[in-house]
Design a protein around this nucleic acid. Sequence first.
DNA 1: TTATAAGCGAGACGGTACGTCACGTCTTCAT
DNA 2: ATGAAGACGTGACGTACCGTCTCGCTTATAA
Lengths: 190, 190, 190, 190
Amino acid sequence: MHRGNRHGRSEQARLAVLHAADDLLVENGFARLTVEGIAQRAGVAKQTIYRWWPSKTDILFEAFVTDAAEEITPPDTGDLTRDLITYLGALARFLTASDAGAVFRALTAESQHDPALAARLRQEHWTGQRVRDRQLLQRAVERGDLPAMADLDTIVDRLVGPLYYRALVTGQEITTEFVTELVRATIDAK
Amino acid sequence: MHRGNRHGRSEQARLAVLHAADDLLVENGFARLTVEGIAQRAGVAKQTIYRWWPSKTDILFEAFVTDAAEEITPPDTGDLTRDLITYLGALARFLTASDAGAVFRALTAESQHDPALAARLRQEHWTGQRVRDRQLLQRAVERGDLPAMADLDTIVDRLVGPLYYRALVTGQEITTEFVTELVRATIDAK
Amino acid sequence: MHRGNRHGRSEQARLAVLHAADDLLVENGFARLTVEGIAQRAGVAKQTIYRWWPSKTDILFEAFVTDAAEEITPPDTGDLTRDLITYLGALARFLTASDAGAVFRALTAESQHDPALAARLRQEHWTGQRVRDRQLLQRAVERGDLPAMADLDTIVDRLVGPLYYRALVTGQEITTEFVTELVRATIDAK
Amino acid sequence: MHRGNRHGRSEQARLAVLHAADDLLVENGFARLTVEGIAQRAGVAKQTIYRWWPSKTDILFEAFVTDAAEEITPPDTGDLTRDLITYLGALARFLTASDAGAVFRALTAESQHDPALAARLRQEHWTGQRVRDRQLLQRAVERGDLPAMADLDTIVDRLVGPLYYRALVTGQEITTEFVTELVRATIDAK
DNA sequence: TTATAAGCGAGACGGTACGTCACGTCTTCAT
DNA sequence: ATGAAGACGTGACGTACCGTCTCGCTTATAA
């Protein structure tokens, strides 16, 4: 329960802040998310927040990293097409319908205005996420389901790119048909 | 510079505001863009801004719509592959390296936090943009360069989605090879 | 109602702040007097206070100068002893029992910690007050009730000094007998 | 430096706090005197201060009582006029030019805002100080240098009052001539 | 000669108020 | 009627200290 400093930081306060930030984001949206509001909701002093987090996006970041990243880990059943359809469906649901996805969207949006946040997202999220995304294809290559010379990075982008695009950029709906056709056209036709 | 009169709104003030907003966004980023700053830079009263624009994103929106949308109109030379590569290259440059693209990124980011802005972007930008994007493929269908039963909407998403994804979401570089491979895999292999 | 700047400062807000500061000082004491409290009581924005007054002592100062200084102007009936007893009695009451006196005590106390305030009190209060105090004696000299060579400044200090001393320093009571004896010993015995 | 034990408080810490408070008051003034600052300067934990002193004025009070009160004990050579002039000169120096006097002025100022401190000053300082001040006159009465019926309390106030008034209230200079004239007029003319 | 407990340095905590920034509204005056 | 100027009420910012609260270390007795 204690660490680092002599007797250290309150884990209770830390978790209260993360949950309060999460809740308030989902309830009111990022525009109305204030450090004072988080402090009040968490029953914590504002100074305690500023002591440990440089800004409110850092709070969201920690909340995101803590409990959200594994929501979008691809499955591995050995059936590439089925795995992809499952995964992209879960990804669509994460991006458009989950609380963790709301945090992700807010962070991605803010990273357009904040290069430091953008860098942190790249280093602490995308590095790992791209590895996880590739693995699905890598295993298919190893099984012989995909040609060995395929540029896996580009294939990953061709699979997930259209989903992020619809969810974050144009706001179009992501239907089952769209996902199915996307996977079929990208993989099967190869 | 005083232009108060009884014959309607000052075009001079309008343009000064749009350019000031544009410049300040590019110079300082969205986070430091304030209505007061725009007013000062434009040599205009704050009230004049609030009289004509509900919020600072509306200023950016007008600046974007006014002089930016045509930057990303697809060409039409009759050679589908070449046109697509040209277009996607221009799109990548727009998204990552142009002033108008900076405004677009800021608006897209804010639209994550602001449903009204999201709706306005859909109605006043994406509706037209998707039509323009489809036309390129539609003409290819008419020429017989693409099969008639193709789901053009999905193909559009498969072409531009990965670009927006890299530019706005992961921040990865968009190389010529990436664009070429993307077009080849999406169109030629069909 | 308007002055200086183009259309200017709100007299209503100014008075509300002065009265709120006065009231809160008397009710709660200086230690609990906060700018936020004054703003709330006055129904005024904190920024409005900071726009016009550098600190809360400046508010009190303005309240003091505005409506308090003339409470301690010496009378002039031609009877020196009687005038002095009347005046010193009023002064004692001002110092120990009046709202204006509470403001004066607070300002004098703060001036011990704040050289700028001390200088302002000297220039804007004591300069005039000492002139008023001397006039009483000066007129007595002119009437021949006091010897012409008397050092009036020192006599003023010998008369009012013990009162301020008791009221502000030791907190002793100031009785009628004390005042009478003080005047008798200082003036009559001369 | 650790001095924890089971037999009471650390004299070292106590003195470090008193000296730190004294020094910081003289260096920065009362307004910038904080418990945290004292703790840091003294190399002592904040809690150690709060364990032994209810507030920062109590620290100053202890510093004042410890090493300052005897600076203003009247002399006794048998020559009343000379003793008074000596004493009032020392008092003036104490009030306007000594470090102990700075502490005294700060405490007196704060006592305007803090009735508990005012009461403590009366009981622990003024009670004794007034006795010491009277004694000078009392001995003169016993020697026959002053009439037996004189109201010694009032005479004390008439002698020291004008000095405190100038030093603490109006900020006027206290010259040798002023002191001499004050004593002459109060004592000799009697 | 060991254990025990008081005093200590350290510093995190919930708070209050600070002084600043920008918001969006308003009123005035000049054009 | 419009625009430039700018004061206003509002609300959040990030900081400074407040006074309280553990924590783990040091040390002088008392078992």
